[in-house]
Design a protein around this nucleic acid. Structure first.
Length: 135
RNA sequence: UCGGGCAGCCGGGCGACCGCUGGCGAAGGCGAAGGCCGGAGCUGGAGGAAAGUCCGGGCUCCACGGGGAUACGGUGCCGGCCAACGGCCGGCGGGGGUCAAACCCCAGGGAAAGUGCCACAGAGAGCAGACCGCCACGGCAGGGGUUCGCCCCUCCCGCGGCAAGGGUGAAAGGGUGCGGUAAGGGCGCACCGCGCCCCCGGCGACGGGGGCGGCAUGGCAAACCCCACCGGGAGCAAGGCCGAAUAGGGGCGGCCGGCGCGACGGCUUCGGCCGUUGGCGCGGGGGCAUUCCCGCCCUGCCGCCCGGGUUGGCCGCGUGAAGCCUGCGGCGACGCAGGCUCCAGAGGAAUGGUCGUCCACAGCCUUCGGGCUGGGACAGAACCCGGCUUACAGGCUGCCCGGCGCC
């Protein structure tokens, strides 16, 4: 039962990603990636006041969080490692069709070189602790 | 049923799967024990405005002897309600609405204390004023009449009277009518208005009546101002606890020093003794900061100079001026009594994602049965409560006034 990825919370962490990370943009969001070899994936979300009022900003952040959960930490899969991520909301984040939003995120992560967990391997066996099948 | 006008309420419903967050917490595991780990499952989870942060409080810290004055800010008809208010209720006064009406609106104390302002237009706007006009008197000219004395009409000039009418304006120094007058004018009179006094009703704001006054006192106080009353400051990053880290200061100069400990130096009969020294404690002394914190601190006294930290957890933190129902009192705001309920607590900050179905709504088509698309208003708790203000798709309920129709 893998926990969700740890969150980035502090201002200086966001600033570090902004200064040193690689930025990839899609209509639904922008993604900043910084390699962190050996570390489990950590992720942060940010939506500026330019996007809208508090309701709109909250919605954008929640949709980004849900999209990231479905892509990066599906039930049963181990957490990816090796990166820190920041997802940045844009104007379309709150209104874009959710499947399209997921597509944006998938494409952005692929372009940034972040490997997604293997969904097929994750699918079975939530009951037993995942004994790694010998290759 | 139509039109007008108020008040209250709702503001997407149901279901499925996957998630988030608070609470309770089974199996199982660990430990000698207190207990710890663990999390199946159950369950709570945004608003009427959570908003603006404009008022009033609770709570917290800081300040604070009593009285007065000044400055600054606020409030401003009366009575009541409320923990309190700049809020609410009921009245009063004024204004609006309408043929009447239901009903709506209001910074609504003081302008015969002072200062200031009153644009444009207009002759004149605060010691009022005379453009057109009206009237009297004197004079020139023209016309008419004549009893030949003069009279009447018109234009113009001069000198006066007036403020009715026209005109300007937001406002022109009471209004309407009659009398009076050369024409006019509170010049006189009646009524209305205004001011003062008296009586009556009302807790009161105020209302009613009578008498007197001939009119004196234009408006603006969301212009300064005057009067009356009220008002300490900062805010949950308040404030407190625990742990970690760093520190619990450092430097320079001058002067002074009670006791003990320590350190250093010297002497020693090895028991101690003497000296030096602001390293520590006691005693004694001194003193305070606010607006993120280093608080209770400092210290022998005086003077000068130089900083550091801001990370984690817990409490505060939701049983409250609480909500719902019923009854009683009150026109009402509201109060009292009884019963029932526990109802969000995050901290880069939970209430989301997807789907089905129904209910509104909008557009198009329609054979009027419906069909197809679109698509949920304003907006997100951050210590809590009472208000105000502002935003808001659509909808529900009740009441009041008036018209028409029916019984």
């Amino acid at each position: 039962m893998p926990a969700r990825p740890p969150r980035l919370k502090q201002r200086r962490e966001f600033q570090r990603l902004s200064a040193k990370g690689v930025r990839v943009a899609r209509p639904g969001m922008a993604v900043q990636v910084l390699p962190a070899p050996g570390q489990t994936l950590r992720i942060g979300f940010t939506v500026t006041k330019k996007i809208g009022n508090a309701v709109t900003r909250n919605r954008a952040k929640r949709r980004l969080r849900e999209a990231a959960r479905l892509l990066l930490a599906p039930p049963g899969a181990p957490l990816p490692t090796g990166h820190e991520l920041v997802l940045i909301g844009r104007d379309a984040t709150a209104t874009r069709d959710f499947a399209t939003l997921m597509g944006d995120l998938r494409g952005a992560l692929k372009q940034a070189g972040v490997a997604l967990p293997d969904r097929a391997r994750a699918a079975p066996a939530p009951a037993l602790p995942a004994a790694a099948p010998a290759p």
